[in-house]
Amino acid sequence: MTEVFYTDKSRVRASFDKAAQHYDEAAVLQREVAVRMGERLDYIKVAPRLILDAGSGTGESAAALRRRYPEARVVELDLAHGMLSVSREKVRRGAGLLGRWFGKDPWMTCGDLEALPLADNSVDMIWSNLAIQWVNIPDRVFAEFRRVLKPQGMLMFSTLGPDTLTELRQAFAAVDSASHVNRFIDMHDLGDALLKGGFAEPVMDMEKIVMTYPDAKAVMRDLKSIGAHNAMAGRPRGLTGKRAWQTAVDAYEVFRKDGKLPATYEVVYGHAWKSESSRKGAVLPDGRQVIEFIKKPN
């Protein structure tokens, strides 16, 4: 990924800080993906004592992880302080119900996935739901994940693939050649990065989830509500003019079906293990590296 497509993290932080108070109202996709990640955990036998929720948002996944693993301590980490504040307020309001999972205030820290403020070999499990798409160098993130995981620790994550918001991207292509929509990393490149980062037995799969809206404004309003602005360093500066916006809206109408406009999300799932015996991934005698890819039907 070239630097023009790098994420401007200061913009990402500001967007999520601003969206925090109303994030849960629009985070339908995030909740659905978290549920589907949880279903994957049903088939994996782990008993973590310390879990890192990397990109924890408003704490929805952290709460679910505490219910699933009541003996574990969950560390919530997010780039945006506003998100953590909302999570802490939820815990405060529900202290009577959630106290048995905490015992005391939950552990939260504001930090960057590419520079985790955690000690080496300190975490049994990392969970990261729809956060990796905001980083610039996946190799760096996976190196950090591997650094803080204990030997035999597990990483489970979801992120967005390059076909995400393809309708919106094509609609803006009718306006100009600028990049109005964030670009995301391909599943196979992420799998390669896991291997390069020394993870063992990585498994990747992908599915497409389609959200529907009455009009293009509703699509953009939803994206704004969850803080998902175009945050690329090479994004167009300034507001889109009325004429250009109308051109994009008209182009989006081509995709209308059954009275609704679709917004497609390519959701990529992955999990892998930290193994001290893995030398940058499993290697066959002929030198080939092995990674399993599973493509879910649309």
Score class of each variant (00 low, 15 high):
L118K: 08
V123Q: 05
M108V: 15
P262K: 08
A174H: 08
T212Q: 12
I294E: 14
G281P: 09
A174V: 02
R73H: 10
M156Y: 11
G238P: 03
K274D: 11
R31A: 14
G259Y: 02
K274F: 10
G103I: 03
R147L: 08
I294W: 11
T164P: 04
L29E: 03
S61Q: 07
M204R: 02
A143E: 15
V35I: 11
A34W: 03
A231N: 09
A171C: 06
Y213A: 11
L194T: 06
V91C: 08
D120L: 11
K9Q: 07
G234R: 10
E114S: 15
E71P: 03
G191M: 04
N129Q: 11
E32I: 09
L41I: 10
K295W: 06
L284S: 14
A64V: 04
A263S: 13
K295G: 02
S128V: 05
V141M: 14
R88V: 06
P262M: 08
S158R: 03
D112S: 05
G103N: 02
P236R: 00
W127P: 05
A171V: 04
K45G: 04
R288V: 08
W107C: 13
V86D: 00
T212I: 07
L165D: 00
T159K: 02
P70H: 06
E114A: 12
G111V: 01
R237N: 11
V74E: 00
M187C: 05
A282R: 12
L149N: 01
T247W: 01
G259M: 11
Q30Y: 01
A64H: 01
S128L: 06
F5I: 10
E25M: 13
K260G: 10
L261H: 00
L98S: 08
W127M: 07
G103E: 02
L79T: 00
R256T: 04
M220R: 00
S61V: 14
T264I: 14
L155A: 09
D222N: 15
